[in-house]
Nucleic acid binder design. Structure first.
Lengths: 129, 129
DNA sequence: GTAAAGTCTATACCAAGTATAGGGTCAACA
DNA sequence: TGTTGACCCTATACTTGGTATAGACTTTAC
């Protein structure tokens, strides 16, 4: 199949697929006579794996490490488990930060609920502090 | 004061101050004979305002809009209130996304708690799906 | 006088794509 | 046969909010 079909089947845009290839995340495939990229079912599987990882917010570098690990089936998988664990810690931390931000924004919002003039705006006054 | 002192007092790096100036977020200031930037107390206030806004994750464009609004003290402040409100909605939404991601990561982590071989790794198996 | 610290501009880099320009390929249709 | 339209190609620039560097100039301290 050509890149347009792979794009539709995978849900990745055409540019993204080419981008992954350039980043050495996605193996360069065969080309047709007219220099079109030609993919098969294994390309689709590989791309779905990448997409799954990206949906977990793994970086491209981390995905490369995962792919590298996958190529050593007899090694220990602890690096994989550590990666996921560390991501959970990071996400938890980020959620806490955002919860705090939400509180601040909420306080801010309640400083000026009605429609005033700019010079009397409670929000702007808080921002000046 | 020169940029180094402003940097220390504001907590913004020297590069960041120059970056804000280039983005027209922070007014270009007077220069000394040797072409050094010379700031005063009002520069510090302005910079702190920007920093406060950035700590709320407002974008540079949004901060520009706020600054523009501040220059019209007799206009309505509703755009300010809307901005803060919309940010709260966005942050709430982002938190929900991250909570879901955390759940997924948690499920994933529990698929392989012990130290196995790569080919038996529960995490990698889940990622293949 | 000189060395160190501070400042200047311009430029490149980061992540993970997205968008565009300018061109080539391929199939169908008149 | 010519041409239209859909699809594909590469290369490059752009996004965000800074950070980092090179190479040069200014100021300060001794």
């Amino acid at each position: 199949m050509k890149i347009g079909e792979l794009s539709k089947k995978s849900g990745c845009s055409i540019q993204t697929i080419r981008f992954y290839e350039k980043q050495d995340l996605f193996e360069a495939c065969n080309r047709s006579e007219g220099n079109y990229r030609i993919y098969d079912a294994s390309s689709l599987r590989a791309l779905r794996f990448i997409k799954q990882c990206r949906s977990l917010d793994l970086t491209i570098i981390e995905i490369k490490q995962l792919l590298d690990t996958k190529n050593n089936p007899d090694k220990s998988c602890s690096s994989v488990n550590n990666l996921i664990h560390q991501h959970m810690v990071d996400v938890t931390h980020r959620i806490a930060e955002l919860e705090e931000l939400k509180l601040t924004l909420s306080d801010m919002a309640s400083a000026c609920t009605d429609d005033r003039k700019v010079k009397e705006c409670g929000v702007l006054q808080l921002l000046e502090e």
